[in-house]
Design a protein around this nucleic acid. Sequence first.
RNA 1: GUGAGCGUAGCUCAGCCGGUAGAGCAUCGGUCUGUGGAACCGAGGGUCGUGGGUUCAAAUCCCAUCGCUCACCCCA
Length: 358
Amino acid sequence: MYTFADRDEESVSLRPEATASVCRAYIEHGMHTLPGSAKLYYVGPMFRRERPQKGRYRQFYQIGAEVLGASDAPAIDAEVLEMLLVLFNRAGLALTTLSINSIGCKECRPIYVELLREELRKVKDALGPDSQRRIETNPLRVLDSKVPEEQPVIEKLPRIAEHLCSACRQHFSELKDELNLRHISYEENWRLVRGLDYYTRTTFEVTAEGLGSQNAVCGGGRYDGLVELLGGPAGVKGIGFAIGTDRAILSIQDSGKAPNPPGLAVFVAWMGMKAYPAAVAIAKKLRECGLVVEIPAEEMKFKKSLGLADKLGARYALIVGEDEAASGVFTLKRLADAEQKKLSENDLLEYLESEKRQ
RNA sequence: GUGAGCGUAGCUCAGCCGGUAGAGCAUCGGUCUGUGGAACCGAGGGUCGUGGGUUCAAAUCCCAUCGCUCACCCCA
């Protein structure tokens, strides 16, 4: 979290994420009295202080969703993941991998963490300085070390899946059943952890291609203890995710599947000042139909006009010369295949209206 | 916070051991006065990130500074 003093010496902090904020809103608005689980989402800018790198900016954007309520049914976790993957799919974010893990609860995790710490101490000499430090501060973090030399050592460490209590073990097992029910493919990653104590059980992450070393586009998990920790009612469970919007966009762009923005539909190629009034009039009517229209502000040579229409990526050129202005019959040219037809104003509007829907 | 790399035309970049800045693409005009994409010809566009230093002379060498990129750290 980035905290600093502003001009009035007031201490200001920039929010690094929104889950806690959502929990506070849940508490403040008494949402535990709402029927069923509260299903919430947010979109907004967040801030971090670290040096920027690819897909990791000091001001970044997150899209998040949270489910809060009395139930911690595995089906809720699975539904959250289902929604997330549907969203990615619709957005054209392909080649993603969903990793899941369970990090236990306040009963079983501390026991595992101690065990892990003891095992880490035995192999301390094989680890780098960062990991050595983390043995005491946050042993779980050693698991996501990227140092190549440490990998064989880490692979031999005790795994949390083998040390979950029976309730957590069952929850994780049921989660996998629920995911299968929804035909969601995933891989288990026993090294996927969260650093803070209020995180429980399910953790997950979605990674995508084209992002360098920062390849997670979404992270999330269960945080059954957080609402109570923040002063809310006991027994409220929660799960949610946050999408790194900047990274998701980078990955979509990289895959070349970005949807095309609505392009220029009609370029009004007019010739001669006698045709100009008719051109302006029809351009206005086309715009009223919701079409994106470009009309040159100054007279230009006809060849140049069509050339400009092409360069601007217009789908159609509407030709308005003296003949058209006099007869009221326009010439519409489709630029992709050079096919053109003559249409009265009404026919033109009708034709473009039907084209628009395709 | 740590490490590495990079700032030259709108974009991508070249510019060897210092000698007053270049290409491709893009833009604009012409060949071409009612039918686009091509080709050819021509034009415009730069305090070489900024400040200082060395030198007869600095885009080039030195120092500082700002910005950007990638990675580490961190990841609530």
